[in-house]
Design a protein around this nucleic acid. Sequence first.
DNA 1: GGCGCCAATTGACGCGCATCAAAGTGGCGG
DNA 2: CCGCCACTTTGATGCGCGTCAATTGGCGCC
Lengths: 241, 241
Amino acid sequence: MDIQRKDVHNSETPVLCQACESRHRGVCGALTPDQLLQLSKHSTRRTVEPGTELVGESLKTKSYSNIISGVVKLSKMMADGRQQIVGLQFAPDFLGRPFRSENGVSAEAATDVKVCSFPKAAIERMISEMPELEHKLLEQTLTELDEARDWMLTLGRKTAGEKVASFLLLIATHAFPDNESDSVTFDLPMSRTDIADFLGLTMETVSRQLTKLRKDDVIRILNNRHVTVPDLTRLSERAGF
Amino acid sequence: MDIQRKDVHNSETPVLCQACESRHRGVCGALTPDQLLQLSKHSTRRTVEPGTELVGESLKTKSYSNIISGVVKLSKMMADGRQQIVGLQFAPDFLGRPFRSENGVSAEAATDVKVCSFPKAAIERMISEMPELEHKLLEQTLTELDEARDWMLTLGRKTAGEKVASFLLLIATHAFPDNESDSVTFDLPMSRTDIADFLGLTMETVSRQLTKLRKDDVIRILNNRHVTVPDLTRLSERAGF
DNA sequence: GGCGCCAATTGACGCGCATCAAAGTGGCGG
DNA sequence: CCGCCACTTTGATGCGCGTCAATTGGCGCC
């Protein structure tokens, strides 16, 4: 399998989400058993393939989802086709833009993705009734904002080499948030073209920088996907830290 | 409950914030007169000059503020001095990162800025007691996230010319959010260097693109600061739309 | 007015990344 | 095992923007 956030991420006692049929810290973590039961009547659970569009850029959102496993890319496109990936979301993130039907961002599965979806109306009603839920949403949104701003520094001020190293570091830390050792191995959740769209580069430049990192023994790559980083410190130096 | 929320939100007549001694739509808009009175005992109001640091990058935040007037720039810096402005905040935005002492972003006044500050503890207590306030925060945070993602597209995929045009468009729309006509005039809230740091460019490139826009009659500039845009449509074409 | 100071402009040049093109690699069905 | 296809790598060339340096322009001060 590919990227998978290590079980439940800091969990002390994650609530069992009956709707999602899985333990995680998504939105359901804020609900009581009764509320979960009620919500689960309206929820649907499904697994989609890479490339599936989960939320259209200008389409009205009809539902919100918890990501149970996998990676989702959020992207924006210009009229002439230029594209920028503006964020990646991992389990157990919440997917969807509350309080607005359009958000100008399209969400697409990068890997196989398991999601648990709720109708828009149900979620918004629960939000207005449950401060806990709103608080949880605020926390996630603030975290996403922090991450977006970090990435703006990467996009605006880093060189191609630093960008690619930053990307590898991002995936490494999200795949194993609690990793203590200095070496990691993981699978890249997306193609060179996608990586380029995330970094504001071209596919060719990404490829060249990856081979440079390989030649300098900062990383090793098997089958174009499977990456091992023997020393995270050296990688983060390459990323500009 | 629902009605009340809606009311506070879309109110045409913003609530008088006794703490800030000014009518605006900031956080105070969610409070009742009693709560405002209580809060105002702990608030301080001040005006600062351009360049004043309002929140340090790694300093612990001790207070939160409403921006009453002026423009604040949020920026990040790398160890070697490279800098990126990751956001601009206008009145009546809320300034500060709840639920975390560090946020990795420093806030600096771009223009003369009037702020109304509250101690961290007071705000966080009120948040936990007032769902209304938390909702307002969530709304602003979501808006900031949308704006951050828009800017990521600009940073990652637009040319220098498109970037500068996008910046002018951003200022024009924020200076006069309700502008209906196709021509606007406004003052740039910051220097060429700051603009460059916001766009991921150099000062020289910003300057060259501005003179190009001037020569093409898309904009006019007086005294290096005062800008008039005769036709917003032509400007937004230059921005990549 | 003359002077100094700082921000902005303009010019000359080089480098980093994009662009275009071709060859290599892995995956999969026949 | 072979051939096909999508993806990736590698190479050659060009351009956009960065870099460095000189000039201009605004503004307060003596």
